[in-house]
Simulated scan of single mutants.
Amino acid sequence: MNLTSEYCHFFDDDEFVETGRPGFRRRVLTGDNLQLCFWRIAGGSVGSFLHKHDEHEQLGVIVRGGLDFRIGDDESDQDRRLVGEHQAYLAPAGVWHGDSIFVGDDEFDECWILDVFSPPRDDLREEAAR
């Protein structure tokens, strides 16, 4: 049975694109109203600065490893959260998040995150089109 079509996508290792940050690779799929960014990030990586999206909601699911980061309404809040495998986080529009440390899993020493954005981010849409 051939499952390949414009509606079915598989995430083979060679489908992930290196980013400008060491240890960060991603694959982006964009629809009309939502967007999936599948991250594979080397354990111990840093480089996610504290930021917010004023026009986008972000929902993240940790598939492998863990995410140690800051999230909240107050940019100066120094409290950190550890989100582990099979757990999720929600960053509504305007909520600060980031300053992340990525915890690798035992098999690949990677953190795998599925980030869903709504509406889609134009910067990621342009990258996926390349």
Rank of each mutant, 00 (worst) to 15 (best):
L34V: 07
G20S: 07
F102V: 01
L114I: 15
A128H: 04
D122C: 01
A128L: 03
V103P: 00
A88G: 08
D54G: 10
D115P: 12
D68K: 06
A129N: 13
D122Y: 02
S45Y: 02
F108S: 10
E57T: 02
E127N: 02
D73M: 12
P22K: 06
E6Y: 07
F38M: 14
C8S: 11
G66S: 05
G60S: 14
D105C: 13
I62P: 01
G84Y: 00
L114W: 09
F10Q: 09
W96Q: 11
D115V: 02
G60H: 08
D79L: 12
V63K: 03
Q78M: 14
Y7W: 10
L50S: 03
E110K: 05
S100Q: 00
P120H: 13
P22C: 00
L124R: 04
R70A: 05
G65W: 06
E127C: 00
G72N: 08
G72C: 08
Y89C: 00
S118P: 02
F38L: 15
L3R: 07
F117C: 05
F49Y: 12
D54F: 02
D106S: 15
E127V: 13
V61E: 04
S100P: 06
R64P: 04
N33P: 00
D74P: 08
E85C: 10
V103S: 00
D99H: 08
D99N: 15
A93Q: 12
R25C: 04
R125T: 15
C37I: 15
D77K: 11
D109G: 05
D14E: 14
D12Q: 10
V116M: 15
D123E: 14
V46P: 01
H9Y: 11
L3W: 09
E6V: 09
Q35W: 06
M1V: 08
D77C: 13
I41M: 07
R121F: 02
D12W: 06
G44D: 06
D105I: 07
T30L: 08
D122F: 01
V17W: 01
S118E: 03
G23A: 07
L3V: 08
W39Q: 04
P119G: 12
V103F: 05
R26N: 06
A42M: 10
R130T: 15
F102D: 01
S48L: 11
E85N: 09
V61W: 11
G44K: 11
K52L: 13
G84H: 05
H9D: 02
W39F: 14
D106V: 14
A129C: 09
